[in-house]
């Protein structure tokens, strides 16, 4: 039987829980309440209390073509980025799991990028892939502007996605390697006896048994792509949303709108739409993909 400690007085447990409660209230519920409040109100231009305006802030956000641009950019960012993160992490994990010579070194080496802050990685890549020098310069020598993220929005979006993938593949790698290590070795051996080569074994045996890990990574990585600190940090340090709104992901637009444009109400409305979007995606994932995951 499980033993439970029963508190006789009501104030003692509340006292113990208080530090945590204060933190949550101060840094989570209060901001959420403030955002909801701002999203439905508007401050009069010449001072005074904020006025309730219903869905006006939402209507304004949704009627702005730049807002829809940021939704599309975010969708591309949050699907292409996580897809490649998981794919690369999986490939590396499968390779390291084979225990070939040197796998101990690579296990450490592949995780390393995850320890670097997104904006720092962004700055590094800004130089590594800058169009005027190094690798990119020799590509551009073939034909001018073959690669120029300073000029083309699509190139810039590719650049920030590459940085995101570079950093977060290490994260998916850790999880997938841990997942692979819980797949019994004998299964791979049985498949080898059945005539399957390493790639066939990976597809038929290892990946299906990794399904729970893959599903977890799909949900967390897409959320990370939409609202992660790195998504903002990389865009902020590398492109600043440009050129011509080409890399303006939703989180960047929200921060820009709020703290550059000082439009708290519009930014709050956009935040709520973003939360709704993530909830929708997570719902879809659980509703349609999780059914096909075998946990056992």
């Amino acid at each position: 039987m499980e033993k439970r400690a029963v508190f006789k007085s009501w104030w003692l447990p509340v006292l113990f829980a208080l530090p945590q409660l204060v933190l949550i209230l101060l840094f989570f519920y209060w901001p959420v309440a403030a955002v909801v409040n701002w999203a439905f109100t508007l401050e009069p231009p010449f001072g005074g209390a904020a006025e309730f305006v219903g869905f006006a802030n939402f209507r304004e956000a949704l009627s702005d073509p730049f807002y829809w641009n940021s939704v599309v950019v975010s969708l591309i960012f949050a699907t292409v980025g996580p897809f490649f993160c998981i794919f690369i992490g999986l490939t590396l994990a499968l390779a390291v799991d084979r225990q070939l010579p040197g796998s101990g070194f690579f296990r450490f080496f592949y995780i390393l990028p995850f320890a670097i802050a997104g904006p720092a990685a962004g700055m590094a890549f800004r130089f590594i892939l800058s169009p005027e020098r190094g690798l990119a310069a020799s590509i551009n020598a073939l034909s001018p502007d073959l690669w120029n993220p300073a000029k083309y929005g699509s190139h810039a979006l590719a650049l920030v996605i590459i940085i995101f993938i570079w950093k977060w593949s290490g994260y998916t790698f850790i999880f997938l390697l841990a997942g692979l290590q819980s797949v019994p070795r004998a299964l791979g051996e049985a498949a080898a006896m059945d005539g399957a080569g390493p790639i066939r074994r990976a597809i038929d045996v290892q990946v299906p048994l990794l399904a729970p890990t893959l599903f977890f990574l799909l949900v967390t990585m897409m959320t990370e792509g939409f609202v992660g600190a790195d998504t903002f940090g990389i865009v902020h340090s590398v492109t600043g949303g440009g050129p011509n709104h080409g890399t303006e992901v939703m989180v960047y637009r929200i921060v820009d709108e709020a703290f550059q444009g000082l439009n708290y109400s519009g930014a709050s409305a956009q935040s709520i739409i973003l939360i709704g979007l993530i909830m929708l995606f997570t719902f879809i994932q659980f509703r349609f993909i999780e059914k096909r995951v075998h946990y056992k």
Binding site: L187, E189, A190, M193
Partner: peptide, 12 residues
Amino acid sequence: AMVFQNYALYPH
């Protein structure tokens, strides 16, 4: 062909 100690059946 081999029969393994813990059978090593593909659970999926």
